[in-house]
């Protein structure tokens, strides 16, 4: 099966430094937030691990977020298929 594995399965992709600097200097908009999603693809042939860029994540700000929206989001592969073999999948408590 395909599954999200481990505590790092969904993490923030930090924004590019130049975009962050412009925002922090008051010269640009807040950079859009994206997630890196690590999916173990047991159904692939051969099985592998794929990372996806998911976002932008909208509707959240400095005050926290309970109403995140992915209305305009896309899912883009960040690796070539098979680049990370199944044996290198993230540690999962249920593996033991």
């Amino acid at each position: 099966v395909d599954f999200l594995s481990g505590t790092s399965a969904v993490e923030l992709i930090e924004p590019p430094k130049d975009v962050a600097q412009r925002f922090l200097n008051g010269d640009g908009p807040a950079p859009p937030r994206f997630a890196r999603v690590t999916l173990v693809r047991g159904s692939a042939d051969p099985p592998d691990v794929m990372e996806y860029k998911v976002g932008p994540i909208l509707g959240c700000g400095t005050a926290g977020c309970d109403t995140a929206s992915l209305e305009t989001a896309t899912i883009e592969p960040m690796l070539a298929p098979g680049a990370v073999p199944f044996q290198k999948r993230p540690y999962e408590l249920s593996d033991v």
Binding site: L12, P15, T62
Partner: peptide, 27 residues
């Protein structure tokens, strides 16, 4: 905030979105 990790709300929204687009994915 721009470097903060994803909030629980954001994480849930991402997981829900992935499962919507890829129904076979298990969490």
């Amino acid at each position: 905030w721009i470097f903060d990790s994803l909030s629980p709300g954001e994480t849930k929204a991402v997981v829900d979105f992935v499962k919507l687009k890829m129904p076979a994915v298990e969490t």
